[in-house]
Write a protein that binds this DNA or RNA. Sequence first.
DNA 1: CACCGAATGATACTTTGTGTCAATAATGCG
DNA 2: CGCATTATTGACACAAAGTATCATTCGGTG
Lengths: 177, 177
Amino acid sequence: MCYASIMDTRLDPTPIATPPPTADEVLITLVRHGHRVTGPRRAVLDAVLAKPRPFTAEQLVAELGDSRAGAPIGRATVYRTLEILASVDVLSRLIGADGHPSYVVGTPGHRHHLLCSGCGAAVSFTACPVDELVQTLTRDTDFAIHGHLLEVFGVCPTCQDDATTDGIGAGRGVAVG
Amino acid sequence: MCYASIMDTRLDPTPIATPPPTADEVLITLVRHGHRVTGPRRAVLDAVLAKPRPFTAEQLVAELGDSRAGAPIGRATVYRTLEILASVDVLSRLIGADGHPSYVVGTPGHRHHLLCSGCGAAVSFTACPVDELVQTLTRDTDFAIHGHLLEVFGVCPTCQDDATTDGIGAGRGVAVG
DNA sequence: CACCGAATGATACTTTGTGTCAATAATGCG
DNA sequence: CGCATTATTGACACAAAGTATCATTCGGTG
Ligand SMILES: [Mn+2]
Ligand SMILES: [Mn+2]
Ligand SMILES: [Zn+2]
Ligand SMILES: [Zn+2]
């Protein structure tokens, strides 16, 4: 497992690569959307922007509710703020191989993720092969299709090395779909 | 919403269409896999095979724990049995637009689902557009890719009709990805 | 039918997430 | 600046979903 190395290459087979925004930029966006700028929201935002890889809501709750620096932040506030940040495209929700949701920063627009089942690293990409499929499905089923969910799971190079070195199998082969 | 009509067309853009197995066939499979045939397992199996569309574990717990016919079945048993049935390819787990998992019968092998956000109907299909993407991602990231998760969300024809008739908007546009 | 391990299910517990609501803080305005 | 208005906060209670434990029961085998 490669907990140390930051394998967060924001690689883009189809180049778009919007860089993650700064805290100040986000605050402006929030105001523009009619939200207020509060202490707790700054705290959540700062914590979130510091995360180089996907994290769960509860992780943040533990981190910020524990009264680290400044005042501890309530569970409800964390969840609410995450929702807001996602609605403003600062965060995007993604679903892990276990079906549990998590958040990751800086992925506005249409993106998917390649997730390492060893260390949790996420590589986001904009290439989406679903469009053609949607055409076919629409024709064959007459559904009005309005979205899809696509995540790819694998083991990153670092974790592969760790596995062969340690002799420990990396990634539990959580093949889905 | 079309609660009545059974919109469970097991349509296959790429024809494979394995028909759902009978209870007896499944029991044989269970034994073959070293499991025992018990009363509770029969009950869960029967309930499961009667479901024409995706259902959650808790739904089954409510249904079978309520001592309908015969003895009520414990929560743990229901969860355990569902796991086993999924491991034997009688059930497959799928993820809804809300990120919550559910099960659906008779979809062994590599399949994905088109889910109606109105009535919950599921159309399973075997066409998978991810293969090429996996090639690209493997080349670009050196990940050892071992699986993926793909679900498509939309509104089925019946629910579309209901919506225009009732004047109520169908499906909350839960666009994911 | 007697044995043994698998399976059950009541119970308690954890985790994740949602509603409520009085107290508080942020904005806009005079 | 000081105040009114209103969004926001967070403690709390609650709900949903799932897991761990373990004494008891049951299925299968000989
Ligand atoms: Mn896509
Ligand atoms: Mn696929
Ligand atoms: Zn890794
Ligand atoms: Zn429908």
